[in-house]
Amino acid sequence: MKSTKIDPQLIEKATSIFAELGLPIEHAINVFLAKSIQAKGFPFSVALENEVEAQEASHSSIQHHISNAEITEAIHDLVEHALPLSEIENLTQLIYCRNTFGLSFPVLKLAKSPRPEDIRSAAKDAKERNRYSTTKVAQRDKKNYVICTQWTDRHRKAFCRWQAIFSRDI
Rank of each mutant, 00 (worst) to 15 (best):
D118I: 12
I119E: 01
F105H: 15
N90E: 10
P114W: 05
L94R: 00
P114D: 02
I119L: 13
P114T: 05
F101R: 00
V79Y: 05
E117D: 02
P114V: 08
C97G: 12
A123C: 15
F101K: 00
Y96R: 02
R115K: 15
G102I: 06
A122M: 03
S121L: 14
R115L: 15
T92K: 03
A82T: 13
L110A: 11
D77G: 00
A82N: 10
P84K: 05
L83H: 08
F105W: 14
L83M: 04
I88P: 01
L94K: 00
A111S: 15
Y96V: 09
E117Q: 14
L103G: 10
L83P: 09
I88D: 00
F101D: 04
P106D: 09
V107H: 08
E87N: 07
F101V: 00
L110E: 14
D77L: 03
K112H: 03
S121W: 04
D77E: 14
R98E: 13
G102Q: 02
G102W: 11
N99A: 10
A122E: 01
F105T: 15
L85R: 03
K127A: 12
P116N: 08
L91H: 07
E117K: 15
R120G: 01
R115Y: 08
L83I: 02
P84E: 08
H81N: 15
A123G: 14
L83W: 07
S104M: 11
S104W: 09
T92L: 03
E117L: 12
N99I: 00
I119Y: 06
L91A: 09
E117F: 13
T92D: 08
F101E: 02
A126V: 12
S86F: 06
L103H: 07
I95W: 03
S86V: 02
E87V: 08
I119M: 11
N99Q: 14
P114C: 04
L91P: 08
H81T: 15
N90D: 15
L110C: 11
E87L: 04
E80W: 10
D125H: 09
L91V: 02
E89A: 12
D77C: 01
G102N: 01
L83E: 06
A82D: 10
K124G: 00
V107A: 08
K127H: 07
I119F: 10
L94S: 03
N90S: 12
K127L: 06
I119V: 15
A123K: 12
L94W: 00
E87Q: 14
A82S: 13
D125R: 11
P84N: 04
V107L: 03
D77W: 11
H81C: 03
F105G: 04
P84H: 07
